[in-house]
Computed example of a mutant assay.
Amino acid sequence: MFKALISLSIAAAIPAVLISGCSDREAAKAAVKGALHKQAEMNAFAFEGGADLHLDGLAEGDSSTLSGQLFSFLKDSRLEWKGAASLNPIRWESDLKAASRSGSAELTVPLLFQDNKLFFHMPLLNPENEYFVTTLGLPPESPASAGNKSGPDSKPSAPPVPERLSRLSSDLSKLLQEGADEAWFETDGEVRLADGSDARSYTASVTRMSAGAWNKKLQEKLPRMLEVLKSNGLITETQAAQFRRSASSFKLSAPGKWTVVVDKEGFLRKLEMDFKFTGPKGNKSSASAQTFSFHQTFDAVNRVPEFRKPLPRQTKSVDEVLKRLVSGGEQ
């Protein structure tokens, strides 16, 4: 009789545990979704991040174009960045450090966006205190942009680089959130942020059990991901077509994770991605494992940013160089 009661108690408890677990996972995904959408309310913030790319199995970029040379350098490199941003008015500054994994090349590039102009210093090309400068279009929806239209057939200017980078991060994260199953999410618990406040961490993991489902979702979302990359000028239509043809070669493998940290006000404060996958053969004799690690933190959300870089006085136009970089040399 006693054993029967124990068995009955366990049987009754199992559905409750499953329901509770399901509810927790649904809440975790809902919190992540809310934080990603709340990014639109982040008008000012400090940021810091980095990426570790090991994508040497991918095909080399076209060495005759700047975008191809940049892709060939970045696909097997370590990146770090730190800065501050304000979206009203738009101002953005950071220092970008890039180093090849082999250690054969290293680059530190100061960047500043202000008054609708992008300034950046290339150590190998600019003398000390000189910056390249280019004028970028205002966002299509901004009043200033609307006032610059000369007629009904005028095309809106392209959004400035900081807005495009912010939108790229947001769009890719939203695609991940759309494709991720609730069953993959877990609430990690409370964490302490750099400013001393509390936040909650959520993780969607790639495990041996879930890798197949992740890959199915990846194949479904890959065309939209490529469109996001193409619309933000990171790949050309030719490159997008090459990726589409080899889409079935991309497969995630365990372990992997996507972690989002959300503060008490619902703002995204930290984003981490750590994925391992196999890609096309590229220049290798066989498909090889690739890794992609990324992290970004947001602090001082909606506070007055602490900008430190003065507006450069010595500048040199680089419009033609940037045109080649965005178009990939295609006319």
Rank of each mutant, 00 (worst) to 15 (best):
Y131A: 05
Y131F: 14
Y131W: 15
Y131H: 12
Y131D: 02
Y131N: 02
Y131K: 12
V133R: 03
V133P: 00
V133A: 11
T134W: 03
T134I: 09
T134R: 05
T134D: 02
L136W: 01
L136M: 11
L136E: 04
L136Y: 02
L136T: 11
G137S: 05
G137P: 02
G137M: 05
L138R: 11
L138S: 03
P139A: 14
P139E: 03
P139G: 07
P139W: 00
P139C: 00
P140H: 08
P140A: 14
P140Q: 04
E141P: 03
S142L: 02
S142V: 01
S142T: 00
S142H: 07
P143S: 06
P143I: 06
P143L: 05
P143F: 10
A144P: 08
A144M: 10
S145P: 04
A146P: 08
G147H: 08
G147S: 11
G147K: 13
G147N: 06
G147P: 02
N148R: 06
N148C: 06
N148G: 03
N148F: 09
N148H: 03
K149F: 05
K149G: 12
K149N: 09
K149L: 02
S150Y: 11
S150K: 12
S150D: 00
S150P: 01
G151K: 11
P152F: 10
P152T: 05
P152Y: 09
D153E: 09
D153L: 15
D153M: 13
D153G: 05
S154M: 12
S154H: 07
S154V: 08
K155P: 01
K155D: 09
K155V: 11
K155C: 11
P156S: 13
S157A: 07
S157P: 01
A158C: 11
A158P: 06
A158D: 03
P159K: 04
P159D: 10
P160V: 12
P160N: 08
P160D: 07
V161Q: 04
V161P: 00
V161D: 01
V161E: 00
P162I: 04
P162A: 03
P162L: 05
P162W: 02
P162N: 06
P162C: 14
E163A: 14
E163I: 12
E163P: 06
E163L: 10
R164N: 08
R164Y: 10
R164V: 08
R164W: 01
L165H: 04
L165G: 00
L165F: 05
S166L: 11
S166P: 02
S166H: 15
R167Y: 04
R167D: 13
R167K: 15
R167W: 08
L168Q: 09
L168C: 07
L168F: 10
L168K: 09
S169L: 14
S169E: 14
S170H: 10
D171L: 14
D171M: 15
D171S: 15
D171T: 07
D171Q: 13
D171E: 15
L172S: 07
L172N: 00
L172E: 08
L172Y: 03
L172P: 02
S173E: 10
S173P: 01
S173N: 12
S173W: 04
S173R: 06
